[in-house]
Computed example of a mutant assay.
Amino acid sequence: MAHPTPATPRICPACDGFASAAITLGGRDARGHLRTITAHCPSCHGTGTATARRDREGARA
């Protein structure tokens, strides 16, 4: 008996699934560690997936 396959998650088209990135600010702190910030994708808010779009009824193709 065949098992149903789960739906694949929709990957965000803006970031291609790489929703967060660590960016160095340049230089090091007093302990020698790199100073970094985390930037999140503004489209998916750091999740890497996009919500399903519903097509409007009667919309033009």
Rank of each mutant, 00 (worst) to 15 (best):
M1L: 15
M1K: 09
A2P: 10
A2C: 09
A2L: 10
A2Y: 07
A2I: 08
A2R: 13
H3F: 09
H3V: 09
P4A: 10
P4H: 10
P6Q: 14
P6Y: 11
P6C: 07
A7W: 08
A7T: 14
T8N: 12
T8E: 15
T8A: 13
T8W: 07
P9G: 10
P9M: 10
P9Q: 13
P9N: 15
R10N: 12
I11V: 14
C12I: 02
C12V: 04
C12Y: 01
P13D: 09
P13R: 04
A14N: 14
A14C: 10
A14F: 14
C15E: 01
C15H: 03
D16W: 05
G17D: 04
G17Y: 01
F18W: 12
A19Y: 00
S20L: 10
S20I: 09
A21T: 11
A22Q: 08
A22G: 05
A22F: 06
A22K: 08
I23H: 06
I23L: 11
T24E: 08
G26D: 01
G26S: 02
G27P: 02
G27M: 04
G27V: 03
G27C: 04
R28G: 02
R28M: 03
R28W: 02
R28K: 11
D29F: 03
D29N: 11
D29R: 02
A30F: 06
A30D: 12
A30N: 07
A30L: 10
A30S: 08
A30M: 11
A30T: 06
R31W: 09
R31Y: 12
R31G: 06
R31E: 13
R31I: 03
G32H: 03
H33I: 01
H33V: 05
H33S: 13
L34N: 07
L34H: 04
L34Q: 07
L34M: 10
R35E: 06
R35D: 07
R35H: 05
T36N: 06
T36M: 14
T36V: 10
I37R: 11
I37E: 08
I37G: 05
T38C: 06
T38R: 10
T38K: 12
A39P: 00
A39D: 05
H40C: 02
H40V: 00
C41S: 03
C41H: 00
C41K: 00
C41E: 00
S43Q: 13
S43N: 10
S43V: 09
H45Y: 04
G46K: 00
G46S: 03
T47Y: 02
T47P: 03
T47K: 03
T47F: 00
T47H: 01
T47C: 07
T47Q: 03
T47A: 07
T49V: 07
A50Q: 05
A50R: 01
T51G: 13
T51A: 14
A52L: 08
A52Q: 14
A52R: 09
R53I: 13
R53Y: 09
R53L: 15
R54S: 12
R54W: 09
D55T: 14
R56Y: 06
R56F: 07
E57V: 14
G58K: 08
G58A: 10
G58H: 08
G58T: 06
G58R: 05
A59L: 12
A59R: 13
A59Y: 07
A59D: 15
A59F: 07
A59W: 05
R60L: 12
R60Y: 06
R60K: 15
A61R: 11
